[in-house]
């Protein structure tokens, strides 16, 4: 079986906010700033391949307010979950520290969204609204890195777990390769190891 090639696009939000709103500050505050940053991210994705894996890096962002989190995280995810999305795109939020977690969780909850986040220590977590089954199935995919279609029944014997897996695919917090049927953990794709 051929290796999946999905080169990640690194997006440093700290520098992007300075370029997008012509400011010296890298604080992600105010709705207009968030909107400008989101549009800049969308513009970067427009030049990507057929399927984009975008790594949204918050490590240089010292302040993230709720309005900005709504624009940069929630509205960005909503845009690429929409049936009329401009392209296929998946997102991993990187450099997530305690100061970012609450605004992100709040806006995800409000819009009933979930996303994959990488903490500052490099470990991954699923943030936002998810069921207990979705959480445990996401961890199974995360542990294995990828699950081939013929392994699904073995690794996820309960029907509700397979339903949860389909939910995770639909919510784009795992990647399903339509040609092979293999489901990939976004963390492994981000690291280029699957």
């Amino acid at each position: 079986m051929g290796e999946l090639s999905l080169p990640p696009i690194q997006i440093d939000v700290g520098s992007l906010v300075q370029r997008s709103v012509a400011t010296l500050y890298s604080h992600l505050v105010t709705r207009p700033t968030g909107r400008a940053v989101r549009l800049a991210i969308e513009s970067l994705l427009a030049d990507a391949g057929d399927i984009a894996l975008s790594l949204i890096d918050l490590s240089e962002v010292n302040v993230l307010d709720f309005s900005c989190a709504d624009e940069v995280v929630a509205k960005l995810l909503l845009r690429y979950l929409d049936p009329d999305r401009p392209r296929e795109a998946y997102f991993v939020i990187r450099g997530v520290s305690d100061i970012h977690r609450e605004p992100i969780e709040v806006v995800l909850e409000r819009q009933q969204l979930a996303t994959v986040a990488q903490r500052e220590d490099g470990t991954y977590e699923l943030l936002g609204v998810r069921s207990g089954s979705e959480d445990s199935v996401w961890r199974v995919v995360e542990t294995h890195g990828r699950i081939r279609s013929d392994e699904v029944s073995l690794l996820l014997p309960a029907p509700e777990d397979r339903t949860a897996l389909r939910g995770l695919v639909r919510r784009r917090v795992v990647f399903a390769d339509v040609s092979s049927g293999t489901v990939h953990a976004l963390s492994k794709l981000a690291a280029g190891t699957t």
Partner: peptide, 20 residues
């Protein structure tokens, strides 16, 4: 430090209330 950040976020949101 976390309180300083929370304080900044509160200020940002209340000031935006004026603008919006």
């Amino acid at each position: 430090l976390s309180a300083v950040v929370q304080f900044s976020v509160i200020l940002s949101e209340v000031c935006q209330n004026i603008l919006e």
